[in-house]
Design a protein around this nucleic acid. Structure first.
Length: 221
DNA sequence: CACCAGGCAAGTA
DNA sequence: TACTTGCATGGT
């Protein structure tokens, strides 16, 4: 695993890790909680998600048993701080019904399958897209699948490691083809990308105090 | 005040 | 892998 791209990716990882330290994602006590959080955090700051999770936790509602018979509008009120609460309540109900009906409420039934199967099954649930499915597989199932998000695209295209037009799979393949398939590396790397992504030159091409300031930016320097 | 946040699906052409 | 729009609270 010594491609030029791989070296650059590891350089980026090491700079971010040195600057920010371990992120220890995913912040959840159980696989189920992790999956709930993955849906709640869609296009939403984690700060808001925490409030919604706490609302459920303090009422002992953070389980399939507690939520499987709850009407979506009731669930929506509990998760209100997470934003998009009506649509997210339906998405959560979709996921819970899926686990309950297909696997008798036991996540091991899903997570014991091979990675591609898990992915396909998760993607069949309304409200679970590419990033959410892959997050659940990496942080929930503990499989080495690289999670891509908008920041991943922004940072890599800024460093000319990939084209502006690159899609989800282009980015995922870039990481998977040039890095060792290590679960802990993938977990930390994605978390660090999110950590720095918010501060990473939202508007300007160069970010003065970003940890990646001196990383080779390719032909356009 | 404007802008953004750890996306996704449905609707449009 | 076409674009565009709706979804919504809360922090900066």
């Amino acid at each position: 695993m010594t491609t030029a791209t791989g070296e650059t990716l590891m350089t980026i990882y090491n700079l971010l890790f040195t600057a920010y330290g371990p992120q220890n994602w995913w912040p959840a006590e159980t696989q189920f909680e992790m999956m709930i959080g993955a849906i709640l955090t869609q296009n939403t700051s984690w700060n808001n998600v925490e409030k919604a999770i706490q609302n459920l936790k303090k009422r002992d509602l953070l389980s399939i048993e507690a939520l499987k018979d709850m009407p979506a509008p009731t669930l929506a009120e509990h998760i209100r701080p997470a934003g998009y609460f009506n649509i997210k309540a339906k998405r959560l109900k979709n996921l819970i019904a899926f686990i309950q009906e297909k696997y008798d409420g036991d996540l091991n039934g899903l997570f014991s399958r091979d990675t591609e199967t898990i992915r396909m099954k998760l993607l069949s649930v309304r409200g679970i897209g590419l990033e959410t499915a892959d997050s659940m597989i990496l942080y929930g199932a503990g499989r080495a699948l690289f999670v891509v998000d908008t920041y991943t695209h922004r940072i890599l295209s800024r460093h000319n490691l990939i084209g502006e037009e690159a899609g989800y799979y282009d980015l995922q393949t870039l990481f998977m083809d040039n890095l060792p398939h290590d679960v802990e590396l993938f977990k930390e790397f994605h978390a660090l990308i999110v950590k720095t992504g918010k501060d990473y030159c939202r508007r300007t091409p160069l970010c003065p105090d970003c940890p990646l300031e001196h990383v080779n930016r390719g032909v356009h320097g």
